[in-house]
C-alpha cells in the first residue's frame, strides 16, 4: 500500500526543471533530422534563390550581381507576359469550370441510389492515374485526326472537329477538358461538405416555401462555403504552378504559338535549357508574390462569402 501511495505521489509531483530540459533535448534530437533537412533543403535554397534573382548565374561560374536587371528584363520579355496570360487563362476560366462541375457531380453522387459507392469510385479513380499516363491518354483522345473524340464529333456534327492541342485557339480549352478528368479530389471534398449539411435546415426552408433552387442557393451553398473556399485556394495555387501535364503535352516546348507556355514551363526552360538560373529565380519569386497576393485576396474576400457554423 505504501509503495502504491508513493508512486502516485511521484506521478502527481510537478516535473522537475532538469526533466523538462531533458525532454526538450530529446524532442529536439528527434526532430533534428527533419530540421536539418528543412533548413538545408528548403530554407537555404529559398534564401539563395532570392539572392540569385539579382544575379546572372549559370551554375558553373560564380554569380555576377546585376541588381534588379532580371526583374526589369522580365517586364520587357513578351514570353513572360505570354506565359502569365496562358496561366491566368487556366486560373480564371479553368478553375470555375472545374469547381462547378465537381460540385454538380458531388450533388449527383450525394443521392441515395443503389450502387452509389461504385459511381463514386469511378469518378475518383482518374485522380490516382499518374500524370504522365493521363496526359498521354488525353493526347490520343484529343488528337484532331485519329482521336476518338473528333471521330464522334465528325460523325455527329458533320463538321471538322477542333484542333485541340494542335492549334493555338483550342490548346488551352483542351488543357481544361483534360483537367476535368481529375475533378475527383474536389468532388470528394464537396461530397463530404454536402453530407455535413443538417437535414433540418432543408426541412425548415421547405416549410418556409423555398423551392429547390432557393434551397441550394440559401442553404447548401453557404453551408459548404468553407469547402469551396479551401478548394478555391488550393486550385489557384496548383494552377499557377501547372507544369507536368503541359510539359508532356507540348513535349517540353510552348505548344502551338506558345499557347501552352505556362509560367512554370517557361521558368524551367530558362533554368535548365538556357542556364539562366538568375532569371528563373526572379521568375520564381514573382510567382511566389503573385500566389501570396492572390491567396490573401481570396482570404479577404472569404469574410464576405464564407460561412462558418457557430
Amino acid at each position: 500500500m505504501a509503495t502504491i501511495a508513493r508512486s502516485r505521489a511521484e506521478a502527481s509531483a510537478p516535473v522537475s526543471v532538469a526533466m523538462r530540459r531533458r525532454n526538450t533535448r530529446v524532442g529536439v534530437l528527434f526532430a533534428l533530422p527533419f530540421l536539418i533537412g528543412f533548413l538545408t533543403l528548403q530554407v537555404y535554397p529559398l534564401i539563395a534563390s532570392f539572392y540569385y534573382s539579382f544575379t546572372q548565374f549559370n551554375v558553373f561560374q560564380s554569380p555576377i550581381w546585376i541588381g534588379g536587371q532580371n526583374y526589369a528584363q522580365l517586364i520587357h520579355d513578351p514570353l513572360f507576359w505570354t506565359s502569365l496570360q496562358d496561366t491566368f487563362f487556366m486560373v480564371v476560366i479553368g478553375i470555375p469550370i472545374q469547381l462547378v462541375l465537381a460540385f454538380l457531380v458531388a450533388l449527383l453522387l450525394n443521392s441515395k441510389v443503389k450502387g452509389i459507392a461504385v459511381f463514386r469510385t469511378f469518378v475518383y479513380l482518374p485522380t490516382v492515374t499518374p500524370i504522365v499516363a493521363s496526359s498521354l491518354l488525353w493526347l490520343w483522345l484529343l488528337n484532331p485526326v485519329y482521336g476518338p473524340i473528333n471521330f464522334v464529333w465528325v460523325h455527329l456534327l458533320h463538321t471538322q472537329g477542333p484542333g485541340w492541342f494542335a492549334t493555338a485557339a483550342w490548346a488551352k480549352p483542351a488543357m481544361i477538358v483534360m483537367g476535368l478528368w481529375g475533378i475527383g479530389t474536389a468532388m470528394i471534398v464537396f461530397l463530404a461538405a454536402l453530407q455535413g449539411v443538417p437535414e433540418q435546415l432543408y426541412e425548415a426552408a421547405r416549410i418556409d416555401g423555398a423551392n429547390g433552387w432557393q434551397r441550394a442557393l440559401r442553404v447548401t451553398l453557404p453551408l459548404i462555403s468553407p469547402a469551396t473556399f479551401f478548394l478555391l485556394i488550393t486550385h489557384v495555387i496548383d494552377t499557377l504552378q501547372i507544369f507536368a501535364s503541359a510539359y508532356i503535352v507540348a513535349s517540353g516546348g510552348g505548344g502551338p504559338q506558345n499557347a501552352l507556355l505556362f509560367y512554370a514551363v517557361y521558368l524551367y526552360q530558362n533554368a535548365f535549357n538556357y542556364l539562366k538560373m538568375g532569371y528563373a529565380s526572379a521568375m520564381a519569386w514573382l510567382l511566389f508574390i503573385v500566389i501570396v497576393f492572390l491567396t490573401l485576396l481570396i482570404f479577404r474576400s472569404g469574410r464576405r462569402w464564407v460561412y462558418y457554423e457557430g
Binding site: N143, V145, A166
Partner: peptide, 12 residues
C-alpha cells in the same frame, strides 16, 4: 496554317 496544324497533329 491552322489547317496544317490540325493535319500535322495526326502524324505518328
Amino acid at each position: 496554317a491552322t489547317s496544317v496544324d490540325e493535319f500535322t497533329a495526326g502524324f505518328g
